[in-house]
Design a protein around this nucleic acid. Structure first.
Length: 140
DNA sequence: GCCAACGTTGGC
DNA sequence: GCCAACGTTGGC
């Protein structure tokens, strides 16, 4: 299987937004408490790009971030034995035109996007084609 | 505010 | 190990 180097990370902007990432210059993406999401976090490599999606009222991909540190232990919250991990991110670009969920859902070529197929997943791989398609939408 | 989807928990 | 009950996420 080819190595994935594009991802999509979901966040509630009220909790931590892409604008917060720009302000902070760098952040540790912690608090992920889902096995599938954790496993994807572990596959991320330094240098990989991630689309940042705002859930809730915004429901749009709003920016691009880069992985600056690959997965390491996330010990926030109650200690348990699930080996939760976090990655570090730096901002790359605030999209001029955020790409809404409705826009993405309307495109047949994004039908297989996990954001659409698996609505509750918060960390997911994105194919190069899907990644490029979404960025193209951000330019229009 | 509602509810669908889905993950987790706990009784058996 | 199964599955009902319950909790959470997140779109609508």
């Amino acid at each position: 299987m080819p190595k994935i180097s594009q991802w999509l990370l979901k966040t509630e902007p009220e909790t931590y937004s892409f604008q917060d990432l720009i302000r902070d210059k760098s952040t540790n993406w912690n608090g992920v408490r889902n096995y599938q999401a954790r496993n994807y976090l572990r596959e991320m490599s330094r240098g990989d790009l991630a689309l940042i999606y705002h859930s809730g009222k915004e429901r749009a991909v709003i920016g691009i971030a880069r992985v600056s540190k690959s997965a390491y232990t996330d010990a926030t919250g109650q200690p348990d034995s699930n080996n939760w991990v976090q990655v570090d991110l730096v901002p790359v670009e605030l999209l001029k035109n955020p790409v809404s969920l409705a826009q993405m859902k309307s495109l047949p070529e994004l039908k297989e996007l996990l954001l659409i197929k698996q609505g509750r997943l918060s960390v997911m791989p994105v194919t190069q084609l899907h990644f490029d398609t979404i960025l193209q939408l951000a330019k229009d």
